[in-house]
Design a protein around this nucleic acid. Structure first.
Lengths: 175, 175
DNA sequence: GTCTATAGCTGGATAGAC
DNA sequence: GTCTATCCAGCTATAGAC
C-alpha cells in the first residue's frame, strides 16, 4: 500500500479513503486486468479462418500484448498459484467465451478428420501454443538477471518469436 | 514459519533454534532445491545422441520430474519474479553446466547446417521445448479450479504430454 | 533441547484536525 | 478531500524457565 501510494503521489490514508481496503483495491485491479485480458484474447477465437491461421493470430496477439504488458502473466500466475478465491471467482464469472472455445476445439477435430492437419488432441495443441507464447516472458529473469542478457535484446528475442513460433507450429501441424 | 513448524510438529521457537532466521531457513531450501533441479536437468545435456533424441530425453525428464514435484516450478517462478537476490546468486553460483549448454547449442547448429533438422535458432528451440513441458503445470489451477477438471485427470493429461510433445517437436524439426 | 511468554517491528486501517 | 498521528493485528525473533 505504501509503494502504491508513493507511486500515485498520495499517502496511505488517501488510498484507504478512495478504495476502502487493500482487498477492495485489489478487486478493482483484478476486474480491470482480467476484463482486458479475456476480451483481447477472446476476440481471436471469434474470427474466421483455418485452424493454422487462427493459431497464427493467437501467437501474434499474445506475444504482442505481453510485450506491451510484460507484468500481467506474472501477476496472473502469482494469483493462480495462491488459489486466491476472489481471483478465481472473478475469472469464472468472466468466462462467457466458453462456447467460442468449444467451437474452436470442434473445428480442430474436423480439420484433423479431414486430414488437413496432423491429429493432436486439441487441448494439447492449445497448451503447446500458449505455453510457447507466455512462458518465455515468465522466465525473463533467467535471461536478464542470471545470464545477464540486456533487456532490449530480450525484447527483440520475443519479437522474433512471433514468426518463429508460427513457423514451428505450422511445421508441427501440417501433414 | 508457523505453518512450517506445524508441519514439522515442532514450534516456532524450535525452528529459530535450528535455522537461526527465516532467511537462513529459506537459504537452505533454495540450496537443496536448486542443487536437485540443476543436477537432474543437467545430466541430460551430458548424454550422447542426436539433437532430437536429446530433446526427447529433456521432455521425458522434465515432465516426469515435475509430475513428482509439481510445486517446484511455481516456487522457482515466484522467486524469479521477485528478483530475490539471494535466490539469483544461488543459481548463478550453481551454473557449472554452461559449457554443456553451449556444446548443445553448437550441436544443434551443426545438424542444421548439415540439413538434418530444420533451421530454428537454438535459443528458440530450447525455449519452445521447455515452455511446453513446464508451463502446463503452472496453469494447473486454470484446469483444476476454474474449469473444475479433476486432479487425477490433469495428471493423466500431463503424462500423455511426454509422447505428444515429443511427437510435436519431432514433426516441427524434421526436414 | 524444548517450551512459554513476550519484545519489537511492520503494515493495514482509522480517528480527528484542518 | 487531505494530512498526521496512532491504533491494532500479525509476524519474526529472543529471553528465560525447565
Amino acid at each position: 500500500m505504501q509503494e502504491i501510494a508513493d507511486e500515485a503521489q498520495i499517502n496511505k490514508a488517501m488510498l484507504h479513503y478512495y478504495f476502502k481496503s487493500k482487498e477492495k483495491l485489489f478487486a478493482v485491479i483484478i476486474q480491470q486486468t482480467m476484463a482486458m485480458v479475456i476480451e483481447k484474447f477472446g476476440q481471436v477465437l471469434e474470427s474466421e479462418g483455418a485452424v493454422i491461421e487462427k493459431f497464427e493470430r493467437i501467437i501474434e496477439v499474445y506475444i504482442t500484448n505481453i510485450r506491451e504488458n510484460p507484468h500481467i502473466p506474472i501477476f496472473i500466475l502469482h494469483e493462480l498459484s495462491q488459489n486466491h478465491l476472489q481471483f478465481l471467482e472473478t475469472i469464472k464469472s468472466k468466462i462467457h467465451r466458453m462456447p467460442d472455445f468449444l467451437k474452436f476445439f470442434q473445428q480442430i477435430q474436423e480439420e484433423q478428420e479431414a486430414g488437413l492437419i496432423k491429429p493432436v488432441p486439441p487441448v494439447h495443441l492449445l497448451l503447446n501454443v500458449i505455453s510457447m507464447c507466455v512462458f518465455p516472458f515468465v522466465v525473463k529473469p533467467v535471461f536478464c538477471n542470471i545470464i545477464e542478457f540486456p533487456e532490449e535484446q530480450f525484447d527483440l528475442l520475443m519479437a522474433q518469436r512471433i514468426e518463429i513460433v508460427s513457423q514451428f507450429v505450422r511445421n508441427a501441424m501440417e501433414v
